[in-house]
Nucleic acid binder design. Sequence first.
DNA 1: AGAGAGCAAGTGATTTAGTCACTTTGTGAC
DNA 2: GTCACAAAGTGACTAAATCACTTGCTCTCT
Lengths: 222, 222
Amino acid sequence: MAPSLSDRLTEAILGIIRDADLGPGDAIPSARELAKRFEITTPTIREALRKLEATGAVEFRHGSGTYVGPTINNVVLANPHRPPITKESVLQLIGARLLLEPAVAAQAATASQSLEKLEAAVTNALTPPGGPAFALNFHVELAAATGNPVVEELIGSLLKVRVREQQQIRQLYDNRKRDYEEHRAIFEAVKSGDAVAAEQLTREHLDHIRTAIEAAAFPELP
Amino acid sequence: MAPSLSDRLTEAILGIIRDADLGPGDAIPSARELAKRFEITTPTIREALRKLEATGAVEFRHGSGTYVGPTINNVVLANPHRPPITKESVLQLIGARLLLEPAVAAQAATASQSLEKLEAAVTNALTPPGGPAFALNFHVELAAATGNPVVEELIGSLLKVRVREQQQIRQLYDNRKRDYEEHRAIFEAVKSGDAVAAEQLTREHLDHIRTAIEAAAFPELP
DNA sequence: AGAGAGCAAGTGATTTAGTCACTTTGTGAC
DNA sequence: GTCACAAAGTGACTAAATCACTTGCTCTCT
């Protein structure tokens, strides 16, 4: 009912970012500077900045400054304060993907998007360069191949949710070779523009993963 | 690289909420109380609470207290700090829905979920009770009928993004009668378990909306 | 000239102490 | 019984500091 409190500040800061046409990685004015500009004190401006930080709109770097975050242009995001994972929630997640991704694959097959990154993601998965979070995820790149950034965000958010327990799932379902082969098959179908095959292969692929998760016992449950 | 800063506080607060098994609407300890408990000062605890507020995990009510928010159990959410809407972004949004919702409708047709709310949403749309945000949205209820809460969240987030410009779109595409008829047709298909028809009808319905938006001139563009 | 150590300025992180504004609740007068 | 009002509890915000970290510069030594 109230107009707002320090929400106006977050809007104002976003306004500054957009007026200056700043993108992810660019620096924004310091907290002291902003406090002076809006004629408020630093704890107040920090509250507004924290709100923006929570959604990835800005990033703090201690001693250096505050910067525009990576997800400032997102329309949808993974809840950073999500509840702890359970077997049920993982199955719900894979269920959602099973509903969504076959259509994504079909769309990708008919879109005339560049497939370079997608192919890189296929081969990348076999030889993970030690990094825990591989920069190129096959399923995200598949979504990107639809040419619709919102779809890419959607899949990315869905995967980000379980980033913490990814290694756990990896242990349960470490059939990396089969993963690779299925990814490659999907890629080939997309490349040749065979939407029906891409859809079907994706459905089977996710179904395999779901079956593996269903069969596995979960380490920690309340 | 750093372990974290006041992120530990947000986690600790979430821990308190979960340990006490609090749900949306329940009150959490006051800022002063929390500050005392963690042996820190109130501005610091407020920063942590603001982060939680940004994602809807908690809610402030001036003079009353702090309460658990509605989206605390979400895995994905609409970006509250999203960029201003453009015609292109609306089309991307409808494109994502066009990819996703036909599969949702098909799934809903085969699921053995209660359809009461869905039917209510159909009839509700014809007679909006003056409220700008109708509690029962047909597309969200359709997603709910799949029985997968993550799918419901996904569609809900996608729709929430343009809540601000909903009335604008309404003006452009105010074919409420056709909307109602198409919704009812989808509902009937779902009810009779005809997945193929439900899928096709949903695709056509969204395609109509997209066509209408494409044809419309957008009021404000940079 | 180049490489390294060390200083200084700028910035985020947090404290301390207090004031103001709002909501709720209970009490007492009517 | 009902209404007005005071009190307690709470969020909202201020003010002025201090500590911790990063960065860039300069100065020195090689």
